[in-house]
Amino acid sequence: MMIASAALALSLALSGQAAPASVALGAAPGQDESAVVAELTIMAKPQGPAVWLVEKDGAKLYILGSAPPLPHQLKWQSPRLNKALDKASLVLVPPEAAVGVTQVAGFVLKLGGGLRQPLGKALEDQLPPDLKARFVESRTQARKGAGEYRNWKPAVAGFLLLSDFRQAAGLSEAKPVSTIERMAKARKLKVKAVGQYRMSAVTAIAGKLSPEDQLYCLRVALDEVAYDGAHSTTIGRDWAEGDLASVRARYRASAAQRCLTHVPGGAALLEKGLVQTADAMTEALKRPGVTVAVVDLGFLLPADGVLDRLKAQGATITSPVE
């Protein structure tokens, strides 16, 4: 991100790249539907991942739609994005809370005592039999022992396990943001996060989860492990080739999003991320010249998402061919 990234990288409640409250990307809208496609200029499909061009008052904003996690070894080329970066003076990336799980877990260890098991209790001993069996199977796939998670409450353990599984499976929560940052650095471009999540807000929500919510969030994290295992290479390849129709068909609300929308205060945190992103894009269009941004498809495409909000403000949007 990957929040975020990718990301609520403890993906429990944060992925700076987590999508808004409802990620129904669906099929490409018709001409009279969402402002995402209404009155757009359609161009021939270029090489590489899908990129949108947003223009207003002479300013140009190129938006790369991201779909983390992506395979570590994924190779992709985008001549159009390279040309945009050659002309750009600023690169926008997701909120700074979209970091790896290690950094977030370090914060929780110091300040998130409410996220750990009571003294003398072990995680797997507290789980219902069916959930314990799924958890053990998933941590075995991640090549981790029970001791890695025994002191965490279910929701935190689930998202730590999800991140561990992705690492073991060769998936990166940081891509494609880390790749774009490297490309920007090579050109000595300024890189700026569109906002920042306060860790205290995240841990406050996570620390108040009811026992039922804890188990719900663990279940959706385990669902994500299974989903990533089944789709990791296909969605990455489709993203890299700009096959937006196929990505739409597979992309879905992240486990972090589904957990957050299920608990008090979570939806507001996700909406804040959407507002920060849309506001940053609006400000970029007030600058002369070219800006490049990386935005999660879950923020970008839904009705009243980033593209709809920019269109409502009078911007012209050129959409990639699906």
Rank of each mutant, 00 (worst) to 15 (best):
S5W: 08
A9C: 00
L10C: 00
S11D: 05
A21V: 13
Q31R: 11
V51S: 02
E55P: 05
P69G: 10
W76T: 07
Q77W: 13
L81S: 08
A84Q: 01
P95F: 09
V99L: 14
V104H: 04
V104P: 02
A105N: 06
F107C: 04
F107R: 07
G112N: 00
G114I: 05
L115G: 08
L115F: 02
K121L: 01
K121I: 05
L127K: 00
L127I: 09
K132S: 14
V136D: 14
A142V: 12
A146H: 11
G147M: 13
Y149H: 13
R150L: 12
A169H: 08
S178Y: 11
I180M: 05
V191Y: 01
A193N: 14
M199V: 01
T203K: 05
A206M: 10
A206Q: 09
L209R: 07
D213Q: 15
D213K: 15
C217Y: 09
L218D: 05
V220W: 13
D228T: 04
A230Q: 13
W239V: 07
A249E: 03
S254W: 12
S254Q: 02
C259Y: 08
P264C: 08
G266I: 11
A267V: 07
Q276L: 14
E283S: 14
A284D: 00
A284V: 12
L285Y: 05
T291V: 11
V294Q: 08
V295K: 08
G298K: 09
L301S: 02
P302N: 03
G305D: 06
G314R: 12
E322K: 07
